[in-house]
Every structure is written in C-alpha cells, then in structure tokens.
C-alpha cells in the first residue's frame, strides 16, 4: 500500500541544513496496524505527514498503491488523500465554528457528495459512534474524549483505506484513551490500515508492528511480539 524509498527531509536556512529524516525506506501493507515511536524531534510526525501527503519529502520516492506520489502535483495529491486517507490529531482539530454534525459533513462537501447522501452518511456514522444526541453541539461543548471521537468519525466518514493518527490519545485521560484505542482496534479488524504515532507503550501494544525512529533514521522495525512491550 505504502512504499517509501530513500526518503530525506531537511530544512535549510542560509547557513545550515537541518535533517529531519535521513534515508528512510519502508513498506506498509494493506490491513496493517503500525506504530511509529521515538523520542521528541525524531521525525515521527514528519514521516506521518509525508505518508499523508500533507508534506512532501526533500528527496526520495513515495508510492501509494503503486502511484508515484512524489511525481504528482498538489491538486492530484489532494485528490488522492481526500478519498483514501483519514487523519486524527492529538488536539482533535475540529472547526470551532461548526457543530459536530457540520464538522462531520465537511469532508463530504469537498468530495461533492449530494445533500441527501451526505445526510444519511453523517447520520450513520453518528449512530455508530453513539453521538447522535450531540450532533448540534459545538466542539467546546464536548469533553476531550468526545471531541476525539468526533474527529475520528470525521476521518472515517469518507471510508478511508488508511488512517493516520498523530498522538491520538495525547490529550486524553487513560479511560478515554482506552476507548479510542478500542475503536482503532475494531477498525483495523474491519480492514482499515492504521498508522499511529505515539509515546505510549500501552497504545503501541494495540498494533502489530512498531517502527522506532531516532534522529531521523529508522533504527528498528519489528512485529510487536518480537519487540515486546515494556510494562506488560
């Protein structure tokens, strides 16, 4: 599904080139649940953003379902990501001025889904996440866990093949975090590919494969059973 070859990412100002990612190659197959771990500044988020086409590598090749993403223009990339990829962020990133219902509807608007269809799709996902009663509330009126649930619902509404989650439970208490991870688990079992970035060993335990990044390089890439999870 995803194939990265010799990916570099650096920022340069007049005097120095700062490398965020250095020569990383990686393959992720459909249906996998992958965790990216590593200390702050290791380049985890950047790697995730590159996979999600929100950022482009400075050099290297990226194939998504065999498509050479690194050769596509911004418009084609948007087209690709908005139909296949859902994002979940640590700070939820719901639009404050829109209600839950409207937030969920937004991705469909950008895919030009017809009004009737939109309505039933939003209703369906609200049911699935037991949020129908909250649909007219604004994000600030929800608890953090509920906000993240809404954000996941928004990511799922386009029925993505791939979900990219950047510290999805970082702002939540442990009970809320547990819930979210359960949702991911179910999604993965239903066939959605998931890549998450996390510091939490507990969350990592939900996945099948852990990639360790250090100073911009992949230093370890192995199934969970081999790596083991500290504390369990």
């Amino acid at each position: 599904m995803i194939r990265l070859k010799n990916i570099f990412k650096y920022y340069s100002n007049k005097f120095v080139k700062t490398y965020v990612l250095q020569d990383n190659s990686l393959e992720i197959r459909e249906g996998e649940f992958v965790t990216i771990m590593g200390p702050s500044g290791a380049g985890k988020s950047t790697l995730l953003h590159i996979m999600g086409m929100l950022d482009s590598p400075s050099s290297g090749e990226y194939y998504f379902y065999g498509e050479p993403v690194h050769r596509l223009g911004e418009k084609q990339r948007t087209e690709l990501h908005k139909r296949r990829i859902g994002f979940v962020f640590q700070s939820y990133h719901l639009i404050d001025e829109l209600t839950v219902y409207e937030n969920l509807e937004t991705p469909l608007l950008y895919q030009k889904v017809k009004a009737g269809e939109r309505k039933s799709m939003v209703a369906e996902i609200l049911d699935r996440f037991h949020m129908a009663a909250k649909k007219d509330l604004f994000p600030q009126q929800l608890s953090g866990g509920q906000q993240q649930l809404a954000a996941i619902a928004r990511a799922l509404i386009i029925q993505p093949k791939l979900i990219l989650a950047d510290e999805p439970t970082g702002n939540l208490n442990s009970r809320q975090g547990e819930e979210i991870m359960q949702v991911f688990k179910q999604l993965n079992e239903a066939g959605t590919t998931i890549v998450q970035v996390t510091h939490s060993e507990r969350n990592a335990a939900y996945s099948e494969r852990i990639i360790h990044l250090l100073d911009g390089r992949i230093v370890e890439d192995a199934p969970v059973s081999l790596v083991g999870v500290a504390g369990e």
Partner: peptide
C-alpha cells in the same frame, strides 16, 4: 489559519 489547515487535511483544495 487553523481552520484552513483542518480543511486542507479533510480534503479541501486551494481552489475551494
């Protein structure tokens, strides 16, 4: 700016 970012993430094109 944040709204713009979110919209882009959920699939808004520059044009939209």
């Amino acid at each position: 700016a944040r709204e713009v970012g979110v919209r882009k993430v959920v699939g808004a094109s520059r044009f939209q």
